[in-house]
Amino acid sequence: MQRESPALVVRPGLLAAGFTDEELKRWRAQGRLVTVRPGVYVRATDTGPDHPAARHGLAIRAAVQQLAPGAVMSHVSAAVLHGLPLWAAPLDRVHVTRNRRSGGRRSRYLHLHAAALEPDEVVLVAGIAVTSVARTIADLARFLPFEPAVVPADAALHRGLVTRAALADAVERSSNRRGNTAARRVVAFADGRSESPGESRSRVALQRAGLPAPVLQYVIRSADGTAIARVDFGWPKLRTVGEFDGLVKYGRLLQPGQVPAEVVVEEKRREDAIRDEDLRVRRWGWDDLDHFEPVAGRLRLAFDAS
C-alpha cells in the first residue's frame, strides 16, 4: 500500500491558532516539528516519505504554498511530479521556471530559472503548474550530465508520454540556449525500448566502452521460429546476449504464491535454453555499472569467440 504524504503545517496557520514563534522554535529543537522549508513543517508523529523522490514531492508541496503566482515546476521537480525516474540528479532544491528573460537565482531550498515558456509547455499535475514532459526532458538534458539525463528520457519514451519528434522540437524551440548541444545528444541517444534505469545506464556504459550497439529487447527464436526468450541486449551476429540484473526485475517476475528461490530456478532454466541456441550470456548488475570495464572485457571475449 502506498504511504500517504504527511500533512504540511505552515507557520501562519500555527500563529493564527494562537501558538508563538518561541513555541515553534522549541518544538523544532525537540524534534516535534520537522522543517521542510522555512515556515513549513511536518509533525514528527507523521510518517515521512522514505524515498528521495517522495521527499522532494513533499518539498514541492511546501514550495507551492509560498511561491507567488506564475511559478512553474520544472527540471527535476517536474520529473518527480510526472513520475519519471531519476538517477544521480540533485534533489536538494525545488526547481521552478518563470516566463521571463532574467532573474534566475538559487537559494538553499529553491532554484529559480528564468526562461521563455510557451503555453503548450505548461500542464497541470495534481493542480500544480508543471512543465510538459517534452519540455521537462529538454530542460534536464541541458541541466544534467549525459547519463542522468538519459534515464528519464528513456522512461518518458518507454511509457509513451512523449515522442522523439516532440523531444527534438522541445530542444529546438530554444536553439541558442546554453546546453542545447548536450540536449541534442541525449535526444538522439534516448530509446524507449529501455525498460528501466539500469538498462538505460547499461546502454551508456556500453557506448562509453566502445562496444557495438546492441539490439534492445532482443527476442531469441529457435530454428522453427518459436520464441524462447527475450533478453535486454542482443548481439545476434556475435552470438552474444546481455542481461542487466536488477533486484526489482526479479521482484516483477514473482507470481502469486511463488518464492524468490523458484524464480531463480526458472531463470537458470531460461538461461540454459538460451545457451542451447549457441548464444553466450553475460550478466551484470548495479555495482558493475560504476566500474564497467570488467564487464566490457567479458563481452569482448564473448564477441571474439563468435
Rank of each mutant, 00 (worst) to 15 (best):
V80L: 12
R100C: 05
E195I: 00
E172R: 01
A155H: 08
R98T: 08
R142W: 07
R105S: 10
A138K: 10
A170G: 07
D120E: 12
P85I: 05
A79W: 02
V186T: 07
W87Q: 14
S74N: 04
A155R: 10
V187W: 07
S194P: 02
V171S: 08
V122H: 01
S196V: 05
V72P: 05
R178M: 13
A188W: 10
R201Y: 08
R185P: 06
E147Q: 10
L140T: 10
A79R: 06
D191E: 12
S132M: 02
G198P: 00
S194C: 01
R184V: 00
V130K: 07
A141M: 08
R142M: 07
R108H: 13
G103F: 11
N99Q: 01
F146D: 14
A129S: 15
V123L: 11
A71K: 11
A115R: 12
A89C: 02
S107E: 05
G104S: 03
S132C: 08
H158T: 11
S132W: 04
A138H: 05
L112T: 15
P85L: 00
A138G: 02
A134V: 01
R178I: 12
R98S: 08
R93G: 06
V130C: 12
V80E: 05
A166H: 10
V80N: 03
V150T: 11
N180C: 14
S74D: 00
E195H: 05
R105H: 11
E172I: 02
L86G: 06
H75Y: 09
L110E: 12
H111C: 06
T163F: 15
V151F: 12
G160W: 01
I137T: 05
V122N: 06
S174P: 08
L161E: 10
L110G: 05
E199P: 01
L161G: 06
N176T: 15
A188G: 09
N99D: 05
A138D: 05
V150S: 09
R159E: 15
R177T: 04
S174R: 14
A134N: 03
A89S: 15
G104T: 07
S102Q: 15
T136A: 11
V122E: 07
V125F: 07
A88M: 08
P119W: 10
V186S: 04
A78G: 00
S102M: 15
V76Y: 03
R93C: 11
S107G: 12
E118C: 13
V94G: 06
R108N: 13
R177Q: 15
A115K: 03
L157C: 03
V186D: 03
